[in-house]
Design a protein around this nucleic acid. Structure first.
Ligand SMILES: [Mn+2]
Ligand SMILES: [Mn+2]
Ligand SMILES: [Zn+2]
Ligand SMILES: [Zn+2]
Lengths: 140, 140
DNA sequence: AATTAAAATGTAATGATTATAAATTGTCAA
DNA sequence: TTGACAATTTATAATCATTACATTTTAATT
């Protein structure tokens, strides 16, 4: 199922999450923007339309989504936790100029790693840092 | 030059770092243990022999080492920053049972990533999570 | 409508990191 | 050798993201 045309209420239910108004809006934000936001970004954007929203609710909800495995955590910088509703295997690129986090499609099937044979791998994470195309063009 | 048989004082000087007693001991800790420690681990271990050591010094020193690019930052969990004196390209595996962070040798040369062509990549980071061999054996 | 459980909220506490200022140490010319 | 200056270390306070806790609100059930 594509994230973009998803019945969010149904999707939350399917994953054992009661679809409250706040939960729907938070998940909807992740799906619609796909910008790998921090808690603060989500809160600042949603509180415009939900004035009673509490940042604690955003924290609680994201923690619940993580437990139910419908989002993933992205940690690139220390003290900057981001969230992603795309739970397929993909890498990220963070631009050190503009701060944007891009999705990067990688093929991991070919990557056989000798040193991991005896380990039980549950998650893999790949990310890059540098300067994005947009910023490279602007600084010319 | 192998990290293991390194003249630390010389190495720091070569990289534009005045080799104070604290700086030597902190770098020596990283090289000798290769355990990807947190600031707190470094501090707790060294303060045994350097009772006057301040945690601020550990923070300041690691920041300096990072600026001079003789160590790298490892961020796997949120709110758990680790440090590594091995600055060659390699991946990490963190065991969710015992918490150890292992070095994993990967060959990145074969990994050509379509989506990065137009970006200027300065750093790449790969890490895995799961259960390590040692813990798998113990829980049988 | 009353009861109960679940969810959201507001506020306080925690803990890692950073900022700041004072103390200590190292350098070097007089 | 001493005194002055700079670099480094230290102690303490401030910051900020996250978590804990208690209260209020909302939803579900009888
Ligand atoms: Mn993504
Ligand atoms: Mn390593
Ligand atoms: Zn950019
Ligand atoms: Zn283990």
């Amino acid at each position: 199922m594509e994230l973009s045309n998803l019945n969010i209420e149904k999707y939350l239910k399917q994953n054992g999450i009661k679809p409250s108004y706040q939960r729907i809006k938070i998940f909807e934000y992740l799906v619609k923007h796909r910008n790998h936001p921090t808690v603060d970004i989500i809160y600042q954007e949603l509180v415009k339309n939900i004035p009673t929203l509490s940042k604690t609710t955003v924290y609680n909800t994201l923690k619940l989504f993580l437990e139910k495995r419908i989002i993933q955590l992205i940690v690139i910088e220390e003290n900057e936790t981001r969230y992603d509703a795309d739970i397929t295997t993909h890498a990220h690129f963070k631009c050190e100029k503009c701060g944007r986090v891009y999705d990067i499609r990688v093929d991991l099937t070919e990557m056989k790693i000798e040193g991991l044979k005896t380990f039980q791998v549950k998650e893999n994470h790949i990310y890059f840092k540098g300067i994005c195309e947009k910023c490279l063009k602007e600084n010319k």
